[in-house]
Design a protein around this nucleic acid. Sequence first.
DNA 1: CGGTTGTTTGAGGACGTTCAAGTACTGTGG
DNA 2: CCACAGTACTTGAACGTCCTCAAACAACCG
Lengths: 227, 227
Amino acid sequence: MLAIGDHAQFRRAPLFAQMPGASIDRLGSAAHAQTFASKSLLFDQGDQAEFLYVVLSGRVGLIGRDQDDHEMVVEFFGPGDVFIIAAVVLELPLLMAARVLDDSRIALIPAANVRDMLEADHAFAKATVRELSRHWRLLVGQIKDLKLRRAPQRLAAHLLSLPRSRTGEIHLPEERQLIAQRLGMTPESLSRAFADLKRLGVTGRGRQVVIADAASLERYAALDKSG
Amino acid sequence: MLAIGDHAQFRRAPLFAQMPGASIDRLGSAAHAQTFASKSLLFDQGDQAEFLYVVLSGRVGLIGRDQDDHEMVVEFFGPGDVFIIAAVVLELPLLMAARVLDDSRIALIPAANVRDMLEADHAFAKATVRELSRHWRLLVGQIKDLKLRRAPQRLAAHLLSLPRSRTGEIHLPEERQLIAQRLGMTPESLSRAFADLKRLGVTGRGRQVVIADAASLERYAALDKSG
DNA sequence: CGGTTGTTTGAGGACGTTCAAGTACTGTGG
DNA sequence: CCACAGTACTTGAACGTCCTCAAACAACCG
């Protein structure tokens, strides 16, 4: 069951943006919300997808692991984000594990209910198409990044993708080491990448970062007009 | 218009696998097929998505380009594959260009028809969800690859993903330099990666490759059980 | 054939990793 | 509120992987 406070967050998920309230509530009534401590594992690579997850508050990362337990972050999710639709739809084993990064409240919708909804509810199917499409583009962007940009450029692009105040202040939503994993580099390389960007006006420490000259950062990160 | 011979190929696309014939034909009647010469550009990065593309025969690659015209392949498509659904659905500029790699016959469905179908036809929406889900997993696999495996391991994994005869013979569907772009390395590095894999029983030249010992290749490529 | 394109090989160097140490933060209990 | 432990972050040195550049070689096509 979703608690009173959960409903508002649940309905706010972009996935549901263009869905009628009745459809959302039908999914919501099948869901139950739970609070997870930071660092807990929601599921592991290779597991069957039992639920569709909706982040109500906090932060979660999808992580891939190699045979020697090196972990890399594929993507971060925050409030309103829905994840592992693909595995739920296809009933296939999960390609990644999910780790809770901050104490988080998360709604779990049983996979069977999601698949039933998809069968029965055209609005939900359309919403899912849009959600998967948005995701597809994020992943493609990341692949282009990994193949075409070097480490400091990836960092620059990543910083520019975060919300910042008029004065250029950014609050990094994750620890630097996790950002390193997301960007496909080691924490040491990230540290050196930050050092590189100092000459382009990127300063700050810990999770606080200031971008003094966004224009020159953009020029530096430049992949192309459609990066 | 689709020519007589095109129809059979068109209907065979996995995207349409679980769709009623009437729905497929409705899309087909909006489509027109065209033959493209190898190396022609179907569209460019940054363009608006005007069509949904269905490969009837031949081969196409989606490519990302950086500011200095370095090109990398994000994914290959062959007969039955459908591409750039995401940009068509979201009406956003394309993140990549598409280059025809062999002389190819391709069906083009106007984007507006696709969006209309998505609105009106639940079966098509469901099929699109499945297609995007499959794609999503391919891209995630590639990201894990790029972040967790080194060049020769990526090649090993790629070779294992290709269809091979009982005797271990593989016909590479693309030139080696294109495979290099897909795997995120230079042609030189691919060549050296092939040289590395010789000790694991990978031989052959040009597009013909023989895998003598698939088991040891798998061990070498190993990411994890769910790679 | 001869030109063009694709692939391999070698040498050198850049980028990023690893390993190791040191510094700065964070949170907890006294 | 401070001391401390634990964790995160930075820095340095050495190394490895992969890239660049250059040239030779092989395959393909007209």
